[in-house]
Design a protein around this nucleic acid. Structure first.
Length: 575
RNA sequence: GCUCCCGUAGUUCAAUGGACAGAACACCAGACUUCUAAUCUGGAUAUGUAGGUUCGAUUCCUACCGGGAGCACCA
């Protein structure tokens, strides 16, 4: 339990003792909106009812009865609230001491109790573009994985790549029909693009060419059947191009520093899925309708889920059912989380209902988030109205390099690139994460490429400033006995309060599946530090004060590092 | 038509049912012989409408008005 949690427990206990019954818990204590009110507050509205008094009278009645201690040193009734004030020294000693002692482990908890959770995200398609929509998915999924792990879950990140859908046939069709002239083993690159990027362009072409082209659509269906049969030239081409996409994904994951424990492919599960579907069809769990095989979920208010097309080819749920079985039986997960865009809410309700009807008892969760659109309108792979990951990254990198060079004329190319890389990862991820999952992101390029305001760069910069100060102490060890009573600036106690709340921020982010809450928390902490930085000198202070301030800012640096880490963002020593 | 999501400042976003609705961007005015100015300080503007529940509603409920998404062979 963290310092602050212990304090809250103690206060709740003291209140209960004063009342001679268990009336409040630590969770009833809230943080006052203004510093003048104190450090912690009990709203007395609930108690007032129990005691049959007004809330104001309750606060006044109770405040004198509460026994204080050496941490909670004052209690004052202000209207219907009882406001507690902490000993600044004790809180600083507890919180900073804890941070400097636990380091990277500060803020972790055991709420998850080793529950095994598989988090599936970055479910991209081969033969299509990887764009900013996928970026939101991967940033969110990765942050959720790390946050759940910090909350004591056994979080297992996996990805499920759809390499066997009709889109692959469309891309191959266009490749064969419109890119034949390209005899070289290298595909006709869009300047600077990878092969995977190129396939994305081919897919767009395919969609355009197939519009109102019935003959073409029939050819695509033929190609799909050939791919499914896993024989012939088309299958070979499928294998080759599939690898282009997969290599492209691997490169992206490496750049972003996102790791998966396992990457599943639809093509691995399709046969198992088809067998499962055949069995379910035999048992009349699935039925034939209009030539297709469906799950009729009308009774549950979920419409119908088409599983096999009327031409006999498989749809998405086929492999998804087999994959779910694999997760539960082989990987023995307690919970399966699917990080997928909100537009697929109905699909997941249907899929989960089918799994439930099949008798699976494990927890299934569709962690949905809203989509990313462009100022000009919806993104669409089909029309090519997208910002691809590669384009975005190279723009961001150019900007980061430019900004870094401007400030550090003597840095080597290597150092500039290393720092720029971290800035780019931070900028891209933070931009996607800082917004609540239920908000549509209208992706503005200019805004995304900013390095000021509420951005990762601001946090990284704050960290770098602190590191710079610490370097100037020539890495002299912190005094073993820090005199925390030296931290008596108002700005210092604001920072200490914030630091002490970090473990709660981690728990809340996990409970609500909300990395944005953590992002906001870190931004606020950094803002408080930067304000302090301008107002209060560290290195110039007298020895004992300097030691205490160094301990404080080291703790800030540690918490920024820990928090950003949970968002998948690295800190930098200098920038 | 049915279902779901969202309406807060010029813009993009905050606010476990709590005290005076906060930031960022943009705009204006300031702060680098002083620990990194990718920073800081100061300045104006906002809860779609109408009801209800509550001591208290941006938050919960109902209706309406806007915007978006989904609803059988895309994923």
């Amino acid at each position: 339990m963290s310092t602050l949690e212990k304090i809250k427990e103690n206060i709740a206990e003291a209140i209960n003792e004063a009342l001679k019954k268990k009336a409040v818990s630590a969770a009833d204590l809230v943080y006052p909106p203004r510093v003048e009110f104190g450090d912690l507050s009990l709203p007395c509205f609930g108690l007032a009812k129990e005691l049959n008094k007004t809330a104001v009278a309750t606060a006044e009645f109770l405040v004198g009865k509460i026994e204080l201690n050496d941490v909670a040193v004052a209690a004052k009734a202000i209207g219907p609230f009882i406001n507690f004030t902490f000993s600044k020294t004790k809180l600083a000693e507890g919180a900073i001491g804890e941070i400097l002692n636990e380091k990277i482990k500060y803020g972790l908890n055991k709420i998850g109790k080793n529950k095994k959770v598989m988090i599936e995200f970055s479910n991209a398609n081969t033969h299509k573009e990887y764009h900013v929509g996928h970026l939101r998915n991967i940033a969110y999924g990765d942050a959720i994985t790390k946050i759940l792990a910090a909350n004591g879950f056994k979080a297992r990140p996996v990805s499920y790549i759809n390499d066997f859908g009709i889109h692959t046939a469309k891309t191959l069709w266009a490749l064969q029909n419109f890119y034949k002239e390209e005899k070289s083993p290298q595909p006709p690159f869009v300047k600077g693009g990878s092969k995977g990027y190129f396939l994305g362009k081919v897919y767009v072409r395919a969609c355009q060419e197939l519009e109102n082209n019935e003959a073409g659509k029939a050819e695509v269906a033929q190609i799909m059947k050939k791919i499914e049969s896993r024989r012939g030239q088309e299958y070979k081409l499928w294998q080759k191009t599939r690898k282009w996409s997969i290599d492209g994904f691997a490169k992206i994951y490496k750049e972003l520093g996102v790791k998966f424990e396992r990457i599943f492919y639809e093509s691995e599960f399709i046969d198992e899925g088809l067998a499962l579907v055949a069995e379910l069809y035999k048992k009349e769990f699935l039925i034939k309708s209009q030539g297709a095989i469906i799950a009729d979920l009308e009774k549950c208010g979920l419409g119908v889920l088409v599983i096999i097309r009327s031409d006999g080819t498989a749809l998405y749920p086929v492999a998804d059912l087999a994959l779910a079985e694999e997760k539960f039986k082989k990987y023995k997960v307690d919970q399966s989380i699917h990080v997928v865009d909100a537009r697929q809410s109905l699909y997941f309700k249907q899929l989960f209902k089918v799994l439930e009807l099949l008798g699976f008892k494990q927890e299934l969760k569709h962690l949905s988030y809203d989509f990313v659109k462009l100022p000009e309108g919806m993104m669409s792979s089909r029309t090519g109205n997208v910002i691809t990951y590669e384009d975005l990254r190279s723009l961001a990198l150019a900007k980061a390099v430019e900004e870094t060079k401007k400030r550090h004329k003597n840095w080597s190319e290597k150092k500039i690139n290393e720092v720029s890389d971290k800035l780019v990862n931070g900028a891209l991820k933070f931009e996607m994460i800082k917004v609540g999952a239920d908000k549509i992101i209208t992706f503005g390029l200019e805004q995304a490429l900013r390095f000021d305001g509420c951005t990762a760069a601001y946090l990284q910069y704050t960290g770098a400033r602190i590191k710079s100060i610490i370097r100037k102490t020539r890495n002299a060890k912190l005094a073993t006995q820090i005199k925390y009573e030296m931290l008596n600036e108002a700005k210092e106690s604001a920072i200490v309060n914030k630091l002490a709340r970090y473990p709660e921020a981690v728990a809340a982010a996990g409970k609500n599946y909300a990395p944005d809450e953590l992002a906001k928390f870190l931004f606020e902490l950094a803002r408080e530090f930067n304000d302090y930085y301008h107002a209060v000198p560290v290195l110039k202070a007298k020895t004992e004060v300097r030691q205490a301030r160094l301990a404080l800012i080291s703790a800030v640096s540690q918490v920024i590092k820990n928090g950003l880490g949970l968002l998948g963002i690295e800190v930098v020593e200098e920038m």
